[in-house]
Design a protein around this nucleic acid. Structure first.
Length: 1137
RNA sequence: GGGCCAAUAGCUCAGUUAGGUUGAGCGCUCGGCUGAUAACCGGGAGGUCCGCGGUUCAAAUCCGCGUUGGCCCA
């Protein structure tokens, strides 16, 4: 035997190298060589000093492959057994250290291609089509996106384990105005003009660079929380294949007659010079003018009064709206010697006249709104705006639903601007007049105001109205007004030429298709989603911008929108089609579909040359085609035919009106189908007060911070333990730490049996429940395991991911750690091989194996770490199948009985505490008074286990505990009047006496007093030395009276405990022998100890007992203790060899 | 301003589908255990079930009106 010693800084390793001859039962005699490595590791600065750990035994005893022979090897004292697979080549530390686990496992996954192996393992399974909702590439992962991707990852992992080939292509949304504005900021641009000057192509290149850089950062972010998706090949909305998917869908929608060009009032950002989506509008308080404008009546005296906060829309005034059902007043009013006749709603008369500072007024007449309809008026800016709407039907009063009788009851309506005005104007067949360009500047038709930015023209318009005598009042008004979310410019409403998918034409189909999807939670579909579909307007898909998918419409050159119809457009569906039809020489495979490349392509058919509409798609259209875009359809058809539609999509509730909607809209328009079968709709991550995380509130918690604090697995488990069906998550640091400590309990359960298994050469990966003896707790925990599997399976079926996790964690902490492990500890300590120990090993190994597999989708690092130590047969736990319930091991009755036992045990502990008897001291008897047979049966069945757990010598189960004593409680309200001056004495004589004594008659002043039933109430109490406690289903009574036998046992146990404590303080090895000195300051107790010396010696590995003086305090320790009030001195020192 | 959702112990959440004495975990506190030990177990305290009104023998639960917060839309 050779010994090598090597110093490694603050670590010192001692290598014991030896060889042992081992008999090979099957192949005759062989020789096994082995290496046992013990590492003595000095933890610098650690109070415990030197500490022995056993490391890396996997090299040991190669050739000694059966447990029996491994045991032989061990007994030679040279080498230990190679039982535990140590693929990760790491010891199992005392404390769960998430960072260490995650680093080890990450490296392991890389080295072993764990992800690829996992996918290969399920390559032939039935398909499961998951579609990733693409995050926008404008920033980094925040807590909400981390939650989203973690949930998706857990679903993907679980579906694989359930036996599916799961698509896992992540996606990114990479086009759109947000990126354009970021790039504009980088380049210091302020308008579209500057972009044109800089060059569209270069600008688009910059946008692409920006998007790709962000994507790469986000790739890393998502991988850093253990998301196993195909990061080598994400779908990107900027790829030609993906853009083609959008073209294809749009052309299908066109084929279905659902594409339309038309004027619509849209929300326009005058700076970005494009329409922006409603959900891109943010609202902030602004101060606007508030003016009351008079519209002079053409055929009668007086004027209509209307209120507006947008004077700049007055040039485009086309009609005035009233509520036909409301009542209006004709008011004659005077101020400064002048007289006006005004029409306003009756309800508004007072306030309007006050605003106009009229001195006096009278109501001359009341009319219904209906009577006003058809009245003509003159435009109040007729001179300033010569081209004002004066066509047939303009300058007239109409009814409109949007009128409310709050300001004046009449509404200035400009269909060229306001959305409601526009819709009503269309209905009325009025021409749409909008003298404003996309940059918010008036054009020639605005007359005097031409060339001014609309909001800047407000003052001039107000002045002109005043001069014309049509300004009744002018104030200011603070209200919420929309701004562009990227550049904060106030939006304006304009009627412009846009392209639409007319989803309103297929509303019924949308609703029907919606019904085909199953939502978690279901209410989200039936309330919020349905409402939105019912109210949704046509989808404006055009944007007058650069960084987007070009709209694939070619229209006849030099013709205006009014001159063409649907039949005159060419809508191109694929790159190939474009290559075929384009006038230019184009290679479909090489073609980048972005602007400006496609802008230059023309199509000539017959005599007509067609040019492309310069717009790009609304970025919401991009992601709406993700379900086939992710499969590269229509370029590739095979995957689409196999997978489509999506089995499930997973997003937060903001996507109800986002991606959940856009996919339904596009799916219905293009193929009349909803692109997904199931939806998991989760919530938002809020701060601990339930407020949204935002820069301005300074309450942002990043996933990175959380990982620094507790690690990735605890963060993931924390996020997934909360309701995943629509509810928001309040982020709490405390809760996060709690999750870490819960996982630490699991870690403790995991590592607890390892040293014993290792000593015994037991391989948990080969656990066999039929080898060894199963006790009732083994059977119970195995049955609980079946229940847990069933419950988690049911939860997963509903995507109740959180329920499955919580059921599992409860099982681990409540059942396995707090009950099962406690119950089997002593079996683990047995030194020799036994059927009972093997049964416990097999049970715990089975439980851990399945727990680890159930947990794998949630905490992938931790699960693989444990798997590799416990089994390690497969490359990774994630390629394995999810465990399923086994009816043979399921025993619901045993579970019920054990639940009773645990209730009773808890009550017994309570009773013990009341009786002042700690668990270490046995009790003579426990009596259970059961309310029903089920409880009694359960306790009789589990008697042995119960006695062991409550440390009792006997158990009695009864339905009536006769030893209870009834104690008298004198009723003074009755005794007082009856006995007068003697009442106090009677009370004293009665109080606390048992019923028999009272009923026999009590003695007061030498006389026997008879008491009636009314005078005394009785309470039952346990007899002396017995304390009771109740549980659901009965009461438990514990007799804590001492006997000599119990005292012997109790003192011995207390001594043992303290010696063990001392051993621990000395940091002695578990197997190290000691000398023990005990001095007891009480003869009787010393006698008890003498009777139990052998027991104590055995339990603490004492080689001999010595006097306290003989303990060498250099190596040993002498301390004073107190046991049940008796002073005891205990000394311990290791036996030197 | 409108639609949808939420509010229960100091904190995180069950319980609301079908009205019948509000529960758990964490934290606090007192105790126990001690070859899982920087772990673990038990007892206890702790509640205006957001507020007001209604239906009902009975409401955390059903209805109405509010308050606060979230998402979406104006």
């Amino acid at each position: 035997m050779a010994v090598a010693r090597e110093s490694l800084g603050d670590r010192e390793e001692v290598l014991l190298v030896g060889a042992a001859a081992v008999e090979d039962e099957q192949a005759g005699v062989g020789v096994a060589f082995g290496v046992a490595v013990d590492v003595f590791e000095r933890n610098v600065g650690h109070t415990r000093g030197w500490r022995a750990r056993r490391l890396n035994v996997s090299l040991v005893a190669r050739g000694a492959s059966t447990p029996a022979r491994q045991r032989d090897c061990r007994t030679t004292g040279l080498i230990s057994a190679p039982t535990l697979r140590r693929r990760m080549d790491e010891e199992v530390p005392d404390q769960y250290d998430p960072q260490a686990v995650e680093d080890t496992v990450s490296a392991y996954w890389d080295d072993h291609d764990a992800y690829e192996r996992t996918k290969e393992a399920h390559a032939d399974d039935p398909p499961f089509f998951f579609v990733d909702g693409p995050p926008y590439t404008s920033g980094q992962m925040h807590l909400g996106t981390a939650w989203n991707k973690t949930l998706k990852d857990s679903v993907i992992r679980r579906k694989r384990m359930e036996g599916h080939q799961v698509t896992d292509r992540p996606g990114y949304d990479m086009h759109g105005l947000p990126i354009e504005t970021k790039v504009e900021q980088e380049l210091g641009f302020d308008s579209k003009q500057e972009i044109e000057e800089y060059g569209m192509e270069k600008f688009i290149e910059e946008c692409k660079r920006f998007a790709v850089e962000n994507r790469e950062n986000m790739d890393e972010d998502f991988q850093s929380i253990g998301v196993w998706m195909d990061w080598e090949d994400p779908y990107q909305t900027i790829s030609p294949e993906y853009m083609e998917a959008a073209w294809w869908a749009f052309s299908e929608a066109h084929g279905n007659g659902l594409v339309e060009q038309g004027k619509r009032s849209i929300t326009q950002c005058p700076r970005c010079e494009t329409a922006i989506a409603k959900n891109e509008v943010e609202y902030h308080q602004v101060e606007d003018p508030s003016i009351y404008v008079q519209f002079p009546l053409a055929d009668r005296e007086g004027s209509l009064v209307a209120w507006t906060t947008t004077p700049w829309t007055v040039p485009a005034n086309t009609f005035v709206a009233v509520d036909e059902a409301a009542t209006y007043a004709k008011v004659r009013a005077r101020k400064g010697g002048e007289e006006d006749v005004l029409y306003v709603a009756t309800d508004c008369v007072e306030s309007v006249l006050e605003k106009g500072r009229y001195e006096e007024y009278e109501i001359e007449e009341e009319l219904s709104g209906e009577e006003l309809i058809g009245w003509q008026y003159d435009h109040p800016l007729a001179e300033e705006v010569p081209d004002h709407p004066a066509f047939d039907g303009a300058g007239e009063v109409y009814h409109a639903d949007y009128v409310e009788t709050d300001r004046t009851g009449l509404v200035h309506s400009a269909p060229g601007h306001g959305q409601e005005d526009f819709e009503r104007g269309e209905e009325l067949g009025l021409e749409i007049f909008c003298p404003v360009g996309s940059d918010g500047v008036y054009d020639e038709r605005a007359g005097e105001y031409a060339g001014q930015f609309v909001r800047d023209a407000n003052d001039d318009i107000i002045d002109d109205l005043r001069e014309n005598g049509y300004l009744l009042a002018h104030e200011s008004y603070t209200h919420d007004y929309g701004q562009c979310w990227r550049c904060d410019t106030d939006i304006i409403f304009l009627a412009t030429e846009q392209w639409f998918i007319t989803v309103t034409d297929v509303k019924e189909d949308l609703l029907e298709n919606m019904e085909e999807s199953e939502w978690h939670p279901p209410e989200a579909r039936d309330n919020r989603f349905r409402n939105f579909i019912e109210d949704s307007p046509d989808w404006n898909v055009s944007r007058q911008r650069y960084w987007g998918i070009p709209i694939p419409i070619w229209t006849p050159e030099d013709s205006t929108a009014e001159e063409t119809t649907e039949d005159d457009w060419i809508v191109v569906g694929t790159r190939e089609e474009l290559a075929e039809r384009a006038d230019q020489d184009v290679d479909a495979g090489e073609l980048d579909l972005h602007r400006p490349t496609v802008d230059d392509l023309t199509i000539t058919e017959g005599e007509t040359t067609y040019t492309r509409v310069p717009d790009v798609f609304d970025v919401w259209l991009d992601s709406s085609v993700a379900s086939w875009g992710t499969l590269d359809y229509p370029g590739e058809t095979e995957a689409h035919d196999e997978f489509w539609p999506a089995d499930v999509i997973v997003e937060a509730h903001d996507q109800t009106r986002g991606w959940f909607w856009s996919q339904l809209g596009m799916g219905t328009a293009a193929v009349d189908q909803i692109p997904y079968d199931e939806v998991v709709m989760h919530g938002f991550a809020l701060d601990s007060d339930g407020r949204k995380m935002s820069k301005s509130l300074g309450n942002i918690v990043t996933p990175h911070e959380a990982i620094e604090e507790v690690g990735r697995d605890p963060l993931r488990a924390y996020l997934l333990s909360h309701d995943q069906h629509g509810a928001d998550l309040r982020f709490e640091w405390e809760g996060l730490r709690e999750m870490q400590s819960t996982l630490n309990i699991l870690w403790n359960v995991f590592r607890f049996p390892l040293p014993y298994m290792e000593l015994d050469g037991y391989d948990p990966g080969e656990a066999d429940l039929t080898d060894g003896e199963l006790s009732v707790v083994d059977e119970w925990v195995l049955s609980r395991l079946q229940t847990v599997k069933q419950e988690t399976e049911d939860a997963w079926d509903e995507y109740a991911v959180h329920d499955a996790l919580n059921v599992l964690l409860d099982f681990v902490t409540e059942d396995v750690s707090r009950f099962y492990v406690k119950a089997i500890r002593e079996r683990m300590w047995e030194e020799s091989d036994s059927a009972s120990k093997r049964g416990a090993y097999a049970t715990l190994a089975t439980v851990m194996d399945e727990v680890v597999r159930l947990l794998a989708p949630y905490t992938p690092y931790l699960a693989d770490r444990m798997y590799q130590t416990l089994d390690g047969e497969a490359d990774t736990v994630h390629m394995l199948e999810a465990p399923t319930p086994d009816d043979d091991l399921h025993d619901p009755e045993l579970e019920r009985n054990m639940a009773v036992l645990r209730e009773v045990e808890e009550a017994a502990a309570n009773a013990r505490q009341q009786g002042g008897r700690k668990l270490r001291w046995p009790v003579q008897e426990v009596v259970i008074e059961a309310d029903d047979e089920a409880v009694a049966d359960a306790m009789r069945d589990l008697e042995a286990l119960f006695l062991e757990r409550v440390n009792a010598q006997s158990l009695t189960v009864t339905d009536d505990y006769e030893e209870l004593v009834e104690i008298a409680d004198p009723q003074m309200s009755v005794i007082g009047p009856e006995f007068g001056g003697d009442a106090q004495d009677v009370m004293a004589a009665v109080r606390g006496e048992p019923r028999e004594a009272v009923e026999a008659g009590v003695e007061v002043d030498g006389e026997t007093v008879e008491l009636t039933d009314e005078m005394v109430a009785y309470e039952t109490e346990p007899p002396e030395h017995v304390s009771g406690a109740e549980f659901e289903g009965g009461s438990v009574y514990v007799n804590t009276e001492l006997t000599e036998e119990i005292e012997r046992e109790g003192y011995a146990r207390d001594l043992i405990r303290r010696v063990q404590e001392t051993r621990k303080r000395l940091e002695l090895d578990v197997e190290e022998e000691i000398r023990v000195a005990v001095e007891i300051d009480d003869e009787r107790v010393a006698g008890f100890f003498d009777d139990r010396r052998d027991l104590v010696a055995d339990e603490v590995r004492a080689a001999e007992f010595v006097d306290v003086e003989e303990i060498d305090e250099e190596h040993g320790l002498v301390e004073e203790w107190e046991i049940e009030g008796v002073a005891v001195t205990i000394g311990v020192e290791p036996v030197d060899d």
